[in-house]
Amino acid sequence: MSLIRPPRSSLDDLKPELVDLERRLFLRGSLSLGALTMLTGCNLVEGNSVDKALLAMSRWNDKVQAWLFDPNKLAQTYTRADITTPFPFNAYYGKSRAPAVDGAAYRLEVSGLVSDRKSWTVEELRALPQESQITRLICVEGWSAVGEWSGVRLGAFLDRIGADSRARYVGFKCADGYYSGIDMATARHPQTILALDFGGGALPREYGYPMRLRMPTKLGFKNAKHIAALFVTNDYPGGYWEDKGYNWFSGS
């Protein structure tokens, strides 16, 4: 993996442009200038050293952000008048390729460090206490949009399935092949919900039907859509974009 080289998979929405050799050399040269100020003894000849330095800093930034995270600090909430319409679509594929999940056949699989591994239907999830929020989703690209989501508070759900409260991470696997994970403190934040509704109705297909993670304390790409499986773990869960170089914690 190279952090400063775009991934080779097709990226309909992010469209990172392929870079020509000349520019690559320029980037290496100018990046090294920055790396030089960060690191002593950085081997500028070894091509991978810049990536390594940047990844080490990204892991350091994960720790700093976990330390900065206040479990009781709430993100700003908005009124219905502030809602962004149309709400932007964003994924690693085009809108037409968003998965069509069969809600009747859907089962949320639960695994890992939990005492109750039973799977959940949409109806069972809807029967749990629902919470609503109108919050700002901030994309890693820089744009932001206000939307209304409601669903089950993840912290309450973790209690219900008997999750190990000392476990470090909650991981998610999605129907579209996407995967991600979050720290336990964020999972238990009062505004972190397993959203079933968007804008007052069931989540539309392209916005994550039948269930997505919604938390205003992390960037948009951490808010996994079409969640098919949830697991509690002490092993670093990585993520689709995170494994390509995006900062893992990505807290707001």
């Binding site: 190279s2 952090l3 400063i4 775009p6 992010l14 990172p16 100018s30 940047l54 170089g245 900062n247």
Partner: peptide
């Protein structure tokens, strides 16, 4: 213009930005 930018793509740019910010 792309040639004036650093990082190769968004993730590389963010990683560079959030590393150099400490310096």
């Amino acid at each position: 213009p792309a040639w004036m930018t650093l990082g190769g793509w968004l993730a590389g740019a963010i990683a560079s930005h959030f590393a150099a910010m400490w310096v």
